[in-house]
Design a protein around this nucleic acid. Sequence first.
DNA 1: TCGATAATTCGACTATATCCGAATTATCGA
DNA 2: TCGATAATTCGGATATAGTCGAATTATCGA
Lengths: 127, 127
Amino acid sequence: MLCARHGPQRGLLLMLLPEAVEALSALAHGHRLAVFRLLVRAGAGGLPAGEIAREVGVLPNTLSTHLTILGHAGLIRSRREGRSVIYSADYGGMGDLLGFLVADCCAGRPEICAPLVEAAQGCCPSA
Amino acid sequence: MLCARHGPQRGLLLMLLPEAVEALSALAHGHRLAVFRLLVRAGAGGLPAGEIAREVGVLPNTLSTHLTILGHAGLIRSRREGRSVIYSADYGGMGDLLGFLVADCCAGRPEICAPLVEAAQGCCPSA
DNA sequence: TCGATAATTCGACTATATCCGAATTATCGA
DNA sequence: TCGATAATTCGGATATAGTCGAATTATCGA
């Protein structure tokens, strides 16, 4: 399964509202959010579907639909390796979503969203 | 209507998964996301429910349920002013959500989520 | 106190999401 | 080629979300 973005590839801060709704809907589910966070923590190496299912505690077929939803939303990618399919977080898609959420949040009032910047920097202080 | 956080108030980066799912679910809807973004842009002053309904193009009663959902998720606040009820974005709740999403995202690999920091800083460069 | 305006609550209908068991496809090792 | 493992697709049952019209509550001005 390929990562199916809708329409042309967009840069940071240029996500459209329907795409954002799809990404948010994909994450607005306990198991899917757990899967996404697991993959975010797993890094670029990713994890095979079976291990994700075991880790999160979902039946393989149910997980498969969740993975499809996350992939279609541009939040994860997949590649086949032998009998396994390896899933990994799509950091670009994640960045698009976060960028969309903070866009225009504090025009002229930097103090309002300083906590957001702090949160992002706390994520990786050395970046 | 008060902002109904669940359980004790939490600091940045300490949101729990069920709370995050609720916040994401609240935003995972075209009209609600439009309302939230409108309020984020409106700033601390906020907007009365009627104006939001007109702006977004939703019936007042339907909007009311959407506002309740956003409020319960900790993303917006409300205060009464005469006959109007003024709604405004809850930047703290928004920060909690963003912090939750980026938590542990790049342990040891700062380059991965540098774009996220950039996005946040792009939001308010002077903060 | 009364009518008008602002907003919410209620009840019911419709659409959609979610889940599971069973069947199917893809790949590997023997 | 055959059996086993990994993952996905399919079909149907159930639960939940979203919407609307009507009724209700709150506030203001006369």
